[in-house]
Simulated assay, not measured.
Amino acid sequence: MTTKARTAARLAAAGAVALLLAACGDDPAPIALPTVTSNPSMASPVATATTVPVPTPVPSPVARVTDPSPDGAIAAAVYFSELYGYAVSTGDLAAWRDVSDPECSYCKVVAEDVEAGGDYRFEGGQTRVLEASLVGVNSAQDHLVHLIIEQDAWTSTGVDGSSKSGERTSINADALLHHNGSQWIVLEYDAVNSAA
């Protein structure tokens, strides 16, 4: 192996280690990783910095999301709301589908949009629940939870170069949930954007 090849391999390995270590932290800021460019007039490669976004971590459900109490319903509604940003930025719908009722129209639309958006790179759009409260419980023991959510600015870029974007937004949402005996399931979700 030549000196150039060994240097390139070491820089690539250092970049991979940095990316793995960054995924373990809480800081969502992008990390500058070295890339190698060659210049025919130089004997060794030159390292330049490239910004690589940190992978979006899957939200962790708190233990209460399986609790059949009103607090469990609120925790499940918060968890579901946080899954939105994760699902659209990663394309991973496993957790989203796990807590969505098959008849939930909002849940289906989001899943269809994520699946159809495979040719897009989505950045930003993470959600944070600022407030959550139980509105009421009906005779079927369905729980209605009201949430106030903040969503970060986002950009969606297609492989053809087209792009869409949205600014930071406040969202008022209502989640209707039912406990199926083992966990809360979202029966329906209604979200209305307002200016942030």
Rank of each mutant, 00 (worst) to 15 (best):
W184F: 03
S182A: 10
S60P: 01
L130T: 05
D71H: 08
N138L: 01
A111L: 03
L20Y: 04
A73G: 13
V52C: 06
S182C: 06
V135I: 12
A76W: 11
Y189E: 03
G181T: 01
A18T: 04
V192Y: 01
T56P: 00
P40R: 13
V145Y: 04
S156F: 00
V99I: 07
V36D: 12
S41A: 14
P59D: 03
V114P: 02
S69Y: 08
H178P: 05
R128Y: 14
T90G: 07
R64M: 10
H178V: 11
D119L: 15
V88W: 13
V135L: 14
A63Q: 02
V109Y: 14
S89I: 10
E112K: 10
C104K: 13
T56N: 04
A116Q: 15
A47T: 07
S133E: 10
G85V: 08
A76F: 09
D26K: 12
A14L: 14
G85H: 04
A153F: 00
G124P: 09
V135F: 02
L130R: 07
L21M: 14
A63I: 02
V99A: 07
E112I: 13
E112N: 08
V99Q: 03
G72C: 08
E188V: 00
L147C: 10
Q151S: 08
V192W: 01
P55N: 04
A16E: 15
S41C: 09
P61C: 08
D27E: 14
N193L: 10
I148F: 03
V52Y: 01
R64P: 00
A191H: 07
S194D: 07
V192A: 08
T155H: 00
W184K: 00
C107R: 06
L177V: 09
S69D: 09
A140P: 00
T127P: 02
C107I: 05
V192F: 05
A195Q: 14
S163G: 07
D27L: 12
G166S: 05
T157H: 01
D152F: 01
A175E: 09
I149R: 05
V159H: 05
S156P: 01
T56V: 15
S69E: 09
Y120E: 15
V88T: 10
D71F: 06
A195E: 13
A23C: 06
N138C: 03
R128F: 06
G25Q: 14
S81Y: 11
E150K: 07
P55R: 08
P55Q: 04
T3G: 12
D26T: 10
V78M: 02
S100R: 03
G15S: 13
L19I: 06
A9I: 05
T56M: 05
R97Q: 13
E115I: 10
